[in-house]
Amino acid sequence: MQVSPYLHFNGNCEAAFKFYEKVLGAKIVMMLTHEGAPADMPTPPEWKKKIMHARISIDGEIIMGSDAPPAHFHKPQGFSVSLSVADPAEAERKFKALCEGGSVHMPFGKTFFSKGFGMGADQFGIPWMVNCPLEGQ
């Protein structure tokens, strides 16, 4: 069994996944727009280029996402996407890149449980936690 987060975006899923490709080294595995849907599936013209389903791989881990129709979009809350990065300098770099244009909720720094940890949200409103675990954790 595999458990993968599925993120809903406010019309900017493609931009978000391209951003994750750049700052996290993710690979976009697939990106299906509503344009690729069957002809009998009603889709407003302004929605044709929006993402129906997308998948990225980050070091073999999968995150999926799509653009939520405007009436169904809710600001993300009650979760964070968590990254575990072995090297503290690389963890901090990823954290800072993710939070650029977004917000920092807990600055990246050493804690009693990690070599480095930080919490924030990216420019798309997705909450992230970046952790560099202590040895043996």
Rank of each mutant, 00 (worst) to 15 (best):
M1E: 13
Q2P: 14
Q2A: 09
Q2L: 10
G11M: 08
E14H: 07
E14T: 04
A16K: 00
F17W: 05
K18N: 15
E21G: 01
E21M: 01
V23C: 04
A26R: 11
I28D: 11
M30Y: 14
L32M: 15
T33M: 06
H34R: 07
E35P: 03
G36M: 03
G36P: 08
G36A: 12
A39C: 06
A39G: 07
P42H: 02
T43Q: 07
P44Q: 10
P44I: 09
P45D: 15
P45T: 11
W47N: 07
K48F: 06
H53A: 02
A54P: 02
R55G: 13
I56R: 01
G60L: 06
I62D: 10
I62Y: 06
M64H: 12
M64D: 04
G65Y: 02
A68V: 03
P70C: 05
P70H: 08
F73I: 07
F73K: 00
F73R: 05
K75V: 10
P76F: 06
Q77G: 09
Q77P: 08
G78C: 09
F79Y: 12
S82N: 13
L83K: 01
V85P: 02
V85I: 15
D87R: 14
A89K: 12
E90H: 03
E90Y: 04
E90T: 03
E92D: 13
R93Y: 05
L98T: 01
G101W: 14
G101Y: 15
S103K: 13
M106T: 04
M106W: 09
M106D: 08
M106E: 10
P107K: 14
K110F: 15
T111R: 07
G118M: 04
M119D: 07
D122I: 06
F124M: 05
G125D: 12
G125Y: 14
M129G: 05
L134A: 14
L134T: 07
L134M: 10
